[in-house]
C-alpha cells in the first residue's frame, strides 16, 4: 500500500514535470522603453497625488508650484526619451 502510494506520487510528479510543453513562456528582457513607460506612469501618479494634496489644502501655493514644476520637468524628460525611442522603433 505504502509502496503504491510512493509510486503514484513519484510517477505523477515525474509526468507533470517532464510532460512535453507545447509552448514555454518566453523570458524576455525588459527594454529601456518599457522601463521609461513604467517611470512615466509613476511620475504622472506623483503629479496627480500632488494635485490632490494641494486641493486638500496641504501645501501652500509656492510649495505646490515648485514641486509641480520639478515633476513636470521630470515627466517631460521621460516623455521626450520615449518619443525618441518610439521614433527609432517605428523607423526600424
Amino acid at each position: 500500500m505504502i509502496f503504491a502510494a510512493c509510486a503514484v506520487l513519484l510517477i505523477g510528479i515525474f509526468i507533470y514535470v517532464f510532460y512535453p510543453q507545447r509552448k514555454a513562456e518566453e523570458q524576455t528582457q525588459k527594454t529601456r522603453l518599457e522601463f521609461l513607460r513604467e517611470r512615466k506612469d509613476v511620475v504622472y501618479e506623483n503629479l496627480r497625488d500632488l494635485n490632490f494634496e494641494y486641493r486638500a489644502g496641504k501645501y501652500p501655493e509656492e510649495d505646490y508650484a515648485a514641486q509641480r514644476a520639478a515633476l513636470e520637468n521630470e515627466a517631460a524628460q521621460i516623455v521626450a526619451e520615449i518619443d525618441f525611442l518610439e521614433g527609432d522603433v517605428h523607423a526600424a
Binding site: D41, V42, V43, Y44, E45, N46, L47, R48, D49, L50, N51, F52, E53, Y54, R55, Y64, E72, A75
Partner: peptide, 21 residues
C-alpha cells in the same frame, strides 16, 4: 485605463487620485 497625459491642472487630481501616492 491609465492616463495618457499628465494632469495639467490641480483640479485633475480629484477623479484620478487613485495613484500610488
Amino acid at each position: 485605463a491609465p492616463s495618457r497625459r499628465p494632469p495639467v491642472r490641480a483640479e485633475e487630481g480629484i477623479p484620478q487620485a487613485a495613484g500610488v501616492g
